[in-house]
Amino acid sequence: MRLFQSVPERFRRTSGSEKSVVPPTGFTAQLTLFSAAAMAFLAVFALALSQASGRLADRWSAELARSATVRINAPKDQIDAQTEAVMKVLKTTVGIAEARVIGKDEQQALLAPWFGPDLPLDALPLPQLIEVIEDETGYDSDGLRQRLAAETPGAVLDDHTRWRKPLVKAADRLRSLGLISIILITLTMGAMIALAANAALAANAQVIRVLRLIGARDAFIVRAFVRRFTLRAVGGALVGTALGMVSVAFLPAASTAGGFLTGLGFRGWNWFLPLTIPLLAGLVAFWATRWAAFRRLRELT
C-alpha cells in the first residue's frame, strides 16, 4: 500500500526538484516556443492540403468512374433522330443503369462559368450530350462504341478515362506531397529542438558538472532538460496549431461554379486531426532532447 502511495508522491517530488536545477533561460526558451509554433502552423496547412487533395482524388475517381458521356455531332435537322437512336442503343446495352439527355438549360449552366450567363446557345453548333451512368456490373465500352458507330455515325462515347486518370494521379501526388511536407516539418522540428537542447546543455555545462559531482544520475539531469523542452514544444505547437486552424477555418469557401474542385480545409471529424500536432510536437521534442542530452553527457565524467 505504501508503495502505491509513494509513487505519485515520488513523481511529484522529483519532478519538482528537476524543474529547478536548470536555471531559467528567457531567450532560447522563446526561440524554441516560436519554432514549435511556426512548425505547427505549417503542419496544419500541410495537413489541410493532403486532406483536400485526398478528398479530390477520391471524388474524381468515384464520380467520374461511374459516368460517361455520349456526344452527338450531327446537322441540326438530324440531331433529334440520332439522339433517339443512341438512347435506344443505350437502353438495350447491358450494364447501363441510366441514360439521360442533357437539356439546353443544363448545358447552359455547364458553360456559364466559361462563357458567361447570356450565351445564345441556339446560335452555336453545340453537340448533344447524353449522360450515361453505369450500374454495378459495368458495360463493355468497346462493344458499345462499335454499336454506336454502326447505328449513329455522329455519336462518340467518352468514358472520361483519358483525362480522369492524370487528374486522379495529380491529386494523389498532391496528397503525398502534403504527407511528405508533414514528415519534413516533423524532422525539422526535431532537429531544431535538438540544436536548442544542445545549446542549452552547453550553456549549462557548469550546472551539469555540479549535479554529476554530487551524485546525480544521467537520467535525473536528462529529465530536467527533457521536461523543459517538451513543455515548450507542446506550448508553442498549441499556439501554432490554434492559429493555423483559425486561418484554415476562415479561408474563403470554393464557389459552386468550381464545385468540381474542393475547398482547402477540414471536413467533419477531420477537424480533430490537427489536434494531434501538439501531441506529435511533444513526442518529437521528448526524443530529440533525450537523444541530445544523453549524447552530451557521455562526454562528461
Binding site: 526538484s17 529547478s20 536545477v21 536555471p23 550546472v207 555540479v210 549535479l211 554530487i214 551524485g215 535525473f220
Partner: peptide, 19 residues
C-alpha cells in the same frame, strides 16, 4: 554551487538528486 538557487536548496541538492 548552482548559482541560481538559494544556498539552502544548494545544500539540500544531494538529497534532491538522489530522489
Amino acid at each position: 554551487f548552482l548559482d541560481h538557487l538559494p544556498i539552502s536548496e544548494n545544500i539540500a541538492l544531494p538529497l534532491a538528486v538522489s530522489g
